[in-house]
C-alpha cells in the first residue's frame, strides 16, 4: 500500500514537471512582447533595453526556463506584468476562494448526485426515474454562466433577495451575508455536477444490478434494502469515484465563467484578466497550480478506489 502511494506520488511529480515545461514553452510562443506589456507602447530604446535585460530575455529559452523553475520551486513565480506585484501575493487569496467554492460544490453534488442516481436506478422505468433523469439530462446541457445569469436576473434583479456580486469570508461579513453571497454561485457550480453524478451512478448501478452476485445476494433471502446498500452500492460506486478527480479539475477550470458572472475575485477572473493582458508569469503560475490541485485530487481518488475496491490493491500487491 505504502509502495503504491509512493509510486503514485512519483508519477504525479513527473506529470507536474511535464506540464511546467509545456506551459513555459507554450506561453513563450505567445506573439506579444512582454516588454511592451510592462512598459506600455511608448518606450525609448534605453527604457526598452532596461526592461528587456531585467526580464532576462536576452538569455536563451532553456536557460530562462531553468531560472524560472528554480525560482518557482522556492514559490517565487516572478512579478505580474499587469499588476506589478509578486505573483504569489497576487494569486494566494484567489486560489483559496476558488478552491473553497470547488470543494463546497463537490460536497454538495456528490451525495445528492449519488442519491438521485440510486433512486433512478432502483426505480428504473418508474415516474421518479423518468423525471430525475430528464432533469439531469437537461441541466447537464445548460451552460453554467447561463444558469448564473438566470439566477441573477430572478433573485438578484427582480426579487432583490440576494446580492448580485462579490465575495467575502464569513469572519469578515458574518455567516448570513456570506451564505447570501455564495448560494447562487454554488447552485451554478453544483447543478452540472449533480447531473453528471446522477447519470453516472444510475448507469453503473444498473450495470451492477444485472450481475450474478446480486442474484446470489437475493437468493440468500436478504432484504432488498440490504441488497442495494451492501451489495449493489459498493460495486456501483466504483466508476463514480473515478469521476471525483475529473470533476474537481473540471470545476476549477470552469470557475472562470461563474466567477465572472458573480464578480468573485478567484482564480477564474484572474486567469481571464491575465490572458487578456498577456501576463505570462501569472498564467504560468495559475496553470501549474491548477495542475497540482488536479493531481492531488486524482491521487485521493485512487486511494479511495483502493479502499472501495479490493481488487486494485490486490493486483498491486501481487506485482510487488
Amino acid at each position: 500500500m505504502a509502495k503504491y502511494i509512493l509510486k503514485r506520488i512519483a508519477q504525479t511529480v513527473v506529470v507536474i514537471i511535464i506540464v511546467a515545461i509545456a506551459t513555459f514553452f507554450l506561453t513563450s510562443l505567445i506573439p506579444s512582447d512582454p516588454v511592451y506589456v510592462i512598459g506600455g507602447e511608448d518606450l525609448t530604446q534605453e527604457q526598452y533595453d532596461a526592461i528587456y535585460y531585467s526580464l532576462g530575455l536576452d538569455k536563451p529559452l532553456p536557460v530562462r526556463f531553468f531560472n524560472w523553475a528554480a525560482n518557482a520551486l522556492k514559490g517565487d513565480f516572478g512579478t505580474s506584468y499587469v499588476y506589478h506585484q509578486p505573483v504569489w501575493k497576487l494569486i494566494g487569496s484567489r486560489v483559496t476562494t476558488t478552491l473553497y467554492f470547488s470543494f463546497l460544490s463537490m460536497l454538495i453534488s456528490i451525495p445528492i448526485g449519488i442519491l438521485f442516481g440510486m433512486i433512478t436506478a432502483v426505480k428504473r422505468g418508474k415516474k421518479a426515474d423518468t423525471i430525475i433523469t430528464l432533469l439531469a439530462n437537461i441541466s447537464s446541457c445548460l451552460p453554467q454562466f447561463w444558469i448564473g445569469i438566470c439566477l441573477l436576473f430572478i433573485f438578484g434583479l427582480k426579487m432583490r433577495i440576494l446580492p448580485t456580486y462579490g465575495f467575502d469570508w464569513p469572519w469578515k461579513i458574518g455567516l448570513g451575508e456570506h451564505l447570501k453571497l455564495i448560494i447562487m454561485p454554488l447552485i451554478c457550480l453544483s447543478l452540472g455536477g449533480i447531473a453528471s453524478f446522477t447519470r453516472q451512478t444510475r448507469s453503473s448501478m444498473l450495470e451492477v444490478i444485472r450481475q450474478d452476485f446480486v442474484r446470489t445476494a437475493r437468493s440468500k433471502g436478504l432484504k432488498e434494502k440490504k441488497v442495494i446498500f451492501k451489495h449493489i452500492m459498493r460495486n456501483g460506486l466504483i466508476p463514480v469515484i473515478t469521476m471525483f478527480g475529473n470533476r474537481l479539475a473540471f470545476m476549477i477550470g470552469g470557475s472562470m465563467f461563474v466567477e465572472n458572472v458573480f464578480a468573485i475575485p478567484g482564480m477564474g477572473t484572474l486567469m481571464l484578466k491575465c490572458i487578456n493582458g498577456s501576463d505570462l508569469p501569472t498564467i504560468q503560475a495559475l496553470v501549474l497550480i491548477t495542475t497540482a490541485v488536479s493531481c492531488v485530487a486524482y491521487i485521493l481518488t485512487d486511494l479511495l478506489y483502493v479502499i472501495v475496491d479490493p481488487r486494485i490493491s490486490l493486483t498491486s500487491d501481487q506485482s510487488n
Binding site: 450481475q211 450474478d212 442474484r215 446470489t216 437475493r218 437468493s219 451489495h231 459498493r234 460495486n235 472501495v308
Partner: peptide, 26 residues
C-alpha cells in the same frame, strides 16, 4: 416470508462461480 424461505429453507447455487460472489466483500 419469502425472504425467510429463500436462503433459509431453499438455498441455491449457480452456474458461474466466477461472477456469483460479490467481488468487493470478503
Amino acid at each position: 416470508q419469502m425472504q425467510e424461505i429463500r436462503g433459509g429453507r431453499i438455498g441455491m447455487i449457480f452456474q458461474e462461480p466466477m461472477t456469483s460472489l460479490n467481488p468487493v466483500m470478503t
